[in-house]
Design a protein around this nucleic acid. Structure first.
Length: 316
DNA sequence: CTTGCAATAT
DNA sequence: GATATTGCAA
């Protein structure tokens, strides 16, 4: 009774497709005042310049981002996204972090792939197209702060195996493959299935279109394409929205800004706003469920290990 | 250099 | 057990 909607998630895409108006604000207003308030982080008391509390995560009160371009969608050549643009930060990403905290020996919390996060992952891959679905691109499209290429790569690896596994058991007929079906067929590996089955798998994932029209990115205009081209490959501190994690009291009530009368379209997204220029490409994946934001919380897990948990505020 | 993948480690 | 990390090959 809940996967139904997921079954045709693809069909509903058009409906969920964020209108230009929805996307627009996203580019510049990553965090709305309401959101900021929800986190109890007012942009009125900027933490003292004394960088010491945290490395590089500051409250989502990112200053006014660059001039928001008409931004509906960049050239976004869906055919081959390749425009390294913006970016001038990477350089200080890792090194800068070491500035205020013993980042050199700091370990990042274990990333917990929550269904929602995974969904973003799948969505990103789906919209990128299998061919462009490489860790780096996916990571950027997801716009999840703190997510590293390694994180995505590791998960992607597993995800691919999962898809492969399914192709063999699915029986070939795409009949079931369409959207939701992908999630249930056969569980060869409960371990992997568990997580992956939670999110709908686009049809083109199971295997390249067997007919004439190979898969395609379709109309998904937003192609971020903000590849960073720097020669530094430091492990940036995985400080996901720690700002949020610092406040474990905020209830999952963070979704109240968009004003979805219908409770349908919202844009609660915490993008990496840490130190990178908030100049994120306007390619926020669509949000489907009313009121659900990605949060994170660091907590102990298996024995003193810190886990980074991006938990949703609604569930889909 | 980035990716993919197997194995291995935590 | 789930992820991360590593090593090697394209």
């Amino acid at each position: 009774m809940r996967e139904d909607d997921e079954s045709n998630w693809f069909s509903r895409w058009e409906e969920e497709l964020p209108s230009p108006e929805e996307l627009m604000p996203l580019s510049q207003t990553l965090i709305t005042p309401d959101l900021a308030l929800a986190f109890d982080i007012s942009h009125q008391h900027p933490p003292p310049p004394h960088s010491q509390s945290q490395p590089q995560l500051q409250p989502p009160h990112t200053p006014p981002p660059p001039p928001p371009p008409p931004n509906s969608l960049p050239p976004a050549t869906p055919t081959h996204p390749n425009s390294s643009a913006d970016f001038a930060d990477s350089a200080d990403l890792g090194s800068g972090a070491a500035g205020d905290e013993p980042a050199r020996t700091l370990k990042r919390p274990r990333l917990v792939w929550t269904p929602q996060l995974h969904k973003r992952f799948v969505d990103a891959v789906a919209h990128l197209g299998i061919k462009n679905a490489v860790p780096k691109t996916i990571m950027q499209l997801m716009s999840v702060d703190g997510l590293t290429r390694e994180n995505v790569a590791s998960h992607l690896q597993k995800y691919r195996l999962y898809l492969k596994r399914m192709q063999g058991l699915s029986g070939g007929s795409a009949g079931g493959a369409g959207g939701g079906a992908a999630g249930l067929a056969a569980s060869a590996d409960p371990a992997t299935d568990h997580l992956f089955a939670s999110s709908p798998v686009p049809a083109h994932f199971l295997h390249p279109h067997p007919g004439g029209r190979p898969n395609s990115e379709h109309f998904l205009p937003f192609v971020p394409v903000a590849l960073q081209q720097h020669h530094h490959h430091q492990q940036q501190q995985q400080q996901i929205a720690a700002a949020v994690a610092a406040h474990p009291q905020y209830h999952r009530q963070v979704g109240h800004f968009g004003s979805p009368p219908n409770g349908q379209l919202e844009h609660p997204f915490l993008a990496r706003q840490s130190s990178q220029p908030v100049h994120r490409m306007g390619a926020p994946l669509h949000n489907s469920v009313p009121g659900y934001v990605e949060d994170l919380e660091s907590a102990n897990a298996t024995g003193g290990r810190k886990v980074l948990t991006l938990f949703p505020t609604g569930d889909d």
